[in-house]
Write a protein that binds this DNA or RNA. Structure first.
Lengths: 213, 213
DNA sequence: CGCTTGCGAAGCGAATCGCTCCGTTATACA
DNA sequence: TGTATAACGGAGCGATTCGCTTCGCAAGCG
C-alpha cells in the first residue's frame, strides 16, 4: 500500500517560509545573497531548500514567477475597482507592499524562463489598460506614462529602513519605520494626481523596463 | 633637499576615482561589495586603494564623511535661495544627485567616527531649518516633517536602472534611464507641495534615521 | 643618470560560496 | 504502540572569493 508523506504539512510550511525569506533577504542584500542566509532567515535547514529547488537559480526563478503572479493579481484588483483613481492607488500600494520591486536587482543575474516572460508581458498589458483608464478619467496627471508608474513602484519597493531594522532585530523600530514608509508612498502617489506642472524630459520608451532582463 | 612627489597629480586623480567608484559600486552591490570591484571600477590597482586607506572600513568611513559634507553643502545652498520652495527643491535634487542615500546600506556595518557623528548632527540641524522655512512660507505640505523629506531623499537616491545599465555597459540606455529617473523625482517632489490631503499615520520620530547607525 | 614615489597585479591565508551527505526526527499506517 | 519512511537540520565538501601584502616596474625629479 502506498504511504502518505509523513511530514507533508511541515514541508509546505517550509516552502512558503523559504520564499518569504528569500524575498526579504533579496530586498536587503541584493542578488549576491547566499543560500545560507535565506535558509537561516526562514528558520529552515539548507537541505530543505535544495530538496525543493535544484539550484539557487531555480529558487530565484520560481520566486520571480510567483511575484509576477501577484503583480498581475494587483492590477486585476485595481481594474475591478469602480473608481479609476482608487483602482490605480490600490495597484500601486499592493505592488509595493509585496515587494515586487525588490526583485529588480535580480535582472541580468538569472536566465528568464518562459513562464516569467509570459507573465511579464501579461502584466504589462494589464498595467497599460489600468493607466489608460485613469488617464481617460482625468485623475492621473496627463504626462505620467505606464513606465513612469512602474518605475515609481520599483523605486518605492526597494529595501528601506523597515527591512534593515528587521535584520538588525530592532523590532521596536520596525513599526515606526513602516509608518514612515507609508507616508513616503502617500507623498509620491499624491504627486501622480492630475493638476501638477509638466514633468521634465521626455516620456520614457515603453521597453525600458524589459531591456535589462 | 625635500623632493616633490613625482606622481602626485596621478595619485590625487586616483583617489577621486576611487571614491567615485566606491559610491557607485555601493549603490549597486550594497555593503557586501569587494575592494577588487571598487578598484576595477575606478580603473586603478588594488594597491592604490590600500596606499591611501589602511582598510576597506576606513575607505567607507571616509566616503561617509565626504558625503555628509556634500549633504551639508546642499542644504546651505538651499538656504541661500531666496525662494523657500526653490531652496527646498534644490536641496532634495542635489542630495539625490550625488547619491547620498546610497550609503544607507552601510549603516550598522562600520563604526561611526567622530567626524561622521558631528557632520550628521550639523546636517540634521540645517535640514530642520530649511524645512521650517518652507513650512512658514506655506509652500510645503504642513504634515510633512524633516524626517519624511530625508527618508524620501534616501528612497529616491537608491540604486536604480541607471546604475544597473552602467554596470552592464548598456551605455545607450543610461541616458534614457536617467531621464526616467528625473521624472520619478519630479513626481515625488510635486507630492510634497502644499495642497494635498493629510498623510497617513503619525509623524515619524525625529531620531528614526540616527537609530540605525 | 640615480633616487624617490606611486603604480598594477600576482599571490597570500582565511573566509565564504553553492551544494551534498548523513544521522536524526516526526508522522501515517498496521 | 511499533515500524517504515519522507523530510529534517547542519557538518562538511571542493571551489571560489575575500581583504590584504608584496614586489617588480614606470614615471617625475634632481
Amino acid at each position: 500500500m502506498a504511504r502518505r508523506a509523513p511530514r507533508h504539512a511541515e514541508a509546505e510550511r517550509n516552502d512558503r517560509a523559504l520564499l518569504e525569506a528569500a524575498k526579504k533577504v533579496l530586498a536587503v542584500d541584493g542578488a549576491h545573497t547566499s543560500v545560507a542566509t535565506i535558509a537561516a532567515r526562514a528558520g529552515v535547514g539548507i537541505a530543505s531548500l535544495y530538496r525543493r529547488y535544484r539550484t539557487k537559480e531555480e529558487l530565484f526563478q520560481h520566486l520571480c514567477a510567483l511575484s509576477l503572479g501577484q503583480w498581475i493579481q494587483a492590477v486585476e484588483e485595481g481594474l475591478a475597482h469602480d473608481d479609476p483613481w482608487e483602482g490605480l492607488v490600490h495597484y500601486i500600494t499592493a505592488a509595493i507592499e509585496f515587494s515586487g520591486g525588490a526583485l529588480g536587482p535580480l535582472a541580468g543575474t538569472i536566465p528568464v524562463t518562459d513562464e516569467m516572460a509570459e507573465k511579464f508581458t501579461r502584466s504589462e498589458e494589464l498595467t497599460r489598460s489600468l493607466i489608460a483608464r485613469a488617464h481617460e478619467a482625468g485623475v492621473l496627471r496627463a504626462d505620467a506614462t505606464a513606465v513612469d508608474v512602474s518605475l515609481l513602484i520599483e523605486q518605492l519597493g526597494k529595501s528601506s529602513l523597515v527591512e534593515q531594522f528587521e535584520v538588525q532585530g530592532r523590532t521596536d523600530l520596525v513599526d515606526e519605520a513602516s509608518n514612515a514608509r507609508r507616508r513616503i508612498i502617500a507623498i509620491a502617489v499624491d504627486g501622480l494626481r492630475a493638476g501638477h506642472g509638466p514633468l521634465p524630459g521626455r516620456p520614457p520608451g515603453p521597453d525600458l523596463l524589459a531591456e535589462r532582463w
